[in-house]
Design a protein around this nucleic acid. Structure first.
Lengths: 211, 211
DNA sequence: AGTAAGTTGCACACGGCTGTGCAAGTTATG
DNA sequence: CATAACTTGCACAGCCGTGTGCAACTTACT
């Protein structure tokens, strides 16, 4: 029967699949409930052909979110500053940098109906946040009046709040970069002057234009 | 024709209407997209009779959200502490107290599809937050490195983050009361020790059992 | 050039929800 | 008690989205 060598998938089919994923990210970023019709149109395809690449809506959605999660997870994986507080600021800035262009989608992926799809992929990233919070608390640099797990989640929320703010008012990429760090450090218990000073005294925390 | 005295609405009809509003609050709190069938069932009525009280789904939803908004607005209206920082802590605690039982609904009312219905009703409450932030900044007690409008919104988000946290892990009403104040003060730029000390030194900020 | 892979444009069944009409019942209230 | 107010149950139309089947077409690849 199928002798053995299943012919490799066609070139344009691969492209179309990728285009669908991009389109889905864009469209779902505006409206997570958008129809497959809208996604297909954005990709320049037909709704019907979506089913040639994904079994159903759910599979497409999970694939999109999965890609996003891994992207963030990888970005945070690359952050390795010895000072846990600086690391947390970097993590905040990293989230902002990765996600700023897709705020809406990110927010609904993390809070809305897609939440369940993300938890798995983001688990390592969350673990790194928790680890940094733990070390920061142990070092005495941040508050210890809130359980670390809870504090770690509030730190995440602080980063998301800046995303939310950027959907409400104009927030330049650069301002967002600083604001996300300030907000994270504030939630961690640093006084605002200390937070500002810390940011200014670490070159790694300064805003860098994309290369 | 209707001579002039349109007979007053029946007693049970009034009750049912109220029951529907309560049911809607409960059901939509779990799932904002829930069907009218679900709401009617919760109220012990039929979907059909919902339309005897509300023209359509939207009207019901807006009525529910409107009630909630006014409730919060009224609660915040009653807060009149001279120290703006304490007032902001009280505002946080007030939001928590009013909304803690309906976190889900509140979150989707403030962020989800119902957002537009709330903005009007909450405008005065938001104005009070902004006013307090303004005074607090002017007094030098809180950070001035973030524009006040933005800071006011981040303060709101800080309160919402605690609501969110309470949907993720068990958070007693009492712990939430303190946490919401700590988080708000943290975002405002107070160091965590200062924030804790401030809360402990003001009797108004202490947790009080409901009378 | 020939073949398989992929796309398209129908059509359809299906499900869930909304909003309405109407006849038959029940209940409050003067 | 009589009547208007209210609820119920059912039926129906409509909308919008999903997922599938199939024949015709275009495109990539060998």
């Amino acid at each position: 029967m199928t002798s053995s060598a299943s012919r490799p998938p066609r070139r344009d089919a691969v492209d179309n699949r990728a285009a669908l994923l991009v389109a889905a990210r864009v469209v779902f970023s505006r409206d997570p409930e958008a129809s497959l019709d809208a996604v297909a149109a954005e990709a320049g395809l037909t709704r019907r052909s979506v089913y040639g690449h994904f079994a159903n809506r759910d599979e497409l959605q999970r694939e999109v979110v999965g890609l996003g999660s891994r992207r963030i997870a990888d970005a945070l994986e690359a952050i390795t500053h010895p000072d846990p507080v600086v690391r947390l600021a970097l993590i905040g800035a990293g989230i902002w940098r990765e996600v700023e262009a897709f705020r809406m989608m990110a927010l609904t992926a993390l809070r809305g109906s897609l939440r369940s799809s993300t938890t798995a992929g983001l688990a390592p990233a969350r673990a790194r946040v928790l680890e940094a919070v733990n070390q920061a608390v142990a070092s005495g640099a941040v508050r210890d009046d809130i359980p670390v797990e809870r504090l770690a989640r509030l730190v995440e929320d602080a980063a998301l709040a800046v995303l939310e703010e950027s959907t409400r008012s104009e927030l330049s990429v650069r301002d967002g970069h600083r604001l996300v760090m300030l907000n994270v450090l504030g939630v961690l218990g640093l006084g605002w002057r200390d937070a500002g000073a810390l940011i200014d005294s670490h070159a790694e925390l300064a805003w860098k234009e994309l290369s």
